[in-house]
């Protein structure tokens, strides 16, 4: 291993790391909000809303993220990092919506009825009674989605997004040290994903016990 590759290109690695992190965090927050919204649409008592929610999830779950990103990037006047993050949001929202829907459906129906009969509107009942409980159940799957987001953000490299993977491509092209560059870049990814993965595993175990 040639550590000079790492030290000499530290600026580029760190720049890429920063962009990977920023893009993943923004995408996580946005797709959490949108995903919760779509999940509620899917179980709301109005057919057209259900239909819209279902169509969104089914459509975007079933096409490759790279195709979504390229489309956003090439069709709209956006920079690589913006288009890539939007692509990540569009795609991840579909998966988060599914995870949250499953969480909501696991709350006994009686609670919604009870909340409604105590005078809350449907959206109040959802917000105050159902969603907070559902969130506890969906935290582990959401953690997994965040791990996926970090990994998927590597596709920004294909649209000049400036992320870790993109920097790795540039560094390996200049230094010819392909193996070393990719090993170092793998370590940067693992620094982010392994702790998340261990955390998710821990939460899953704790949740299984509390049930």
């Amino acid at each position: 291993m040639n550590f000079a590759i790492l030290t000499e290109n530290m600026d580029l690695f760190l720049e890429g790391f920063k962009i990977t992190l920023i893009s993943s965090v923004i995408a996580l927050i946005a797709s959490l909000l949108l995903g919760a919204f779509i999940a509620v649409l899917r179980i709301a008592p109005y057919k057209p809303l259900n239909w819209f929610g279902t169509a969104y999830v089914e459509f975007f779950r079933n096409i490759p993220l790279l195709v979504i990103m390229l489309s956003v990037y090439l069709i709209f006047p956006l920079k690589g990092i913006t288009a890539g993050t939007i692509g990540l949001i569009i795609y991840t929202t579909a998966f988060i919506a599914e995870a949250i829907r499953a969480g909501i459906l696991s709350i006994p129906k009686g609670q919604l009825e009870a909340a409604r009969s105590s005078g809350l509107t449907y959206s109040q009942a959802m917000r105050i009674v159902i969603l907070p409980q559902a969130i506890k159940i969906v935290i582990p799957p959401l953690g997994n989605q965040f791990i996926n987001l970090v990994k998927n953000s590597a596709l920004l490299a294909a649209i000049a997004g400036g992320d870790l993977m993109y920097q790795a491509d540039l560094i390996s092209a200049r230094t010819f040290a392909t193996m070393d560059t990719y090993i170092f870049v793998a370590m940067f990814y693992l620094v982010l994903t392994i702790p998340l993965s261990l955390g998710v595993g821990y939460l899953e175990k704790r949740l299984a016990k509390s049930n």
Binding site: L74, I75, K79, G80, I159, A160, L170
Partner: peptide, 18 residues
């Protein structure tokens, strides 16, 4: 400087005002 995977993508990007 922005770098792409191949010339087809780079030219498409120029045409799309990237």
């Amino acid at each position: 400087v922005l770098e792409y995977e191949n010339y087809a993508e780079a030219f498409t990007a120029l045409k799309q005002n990237k």
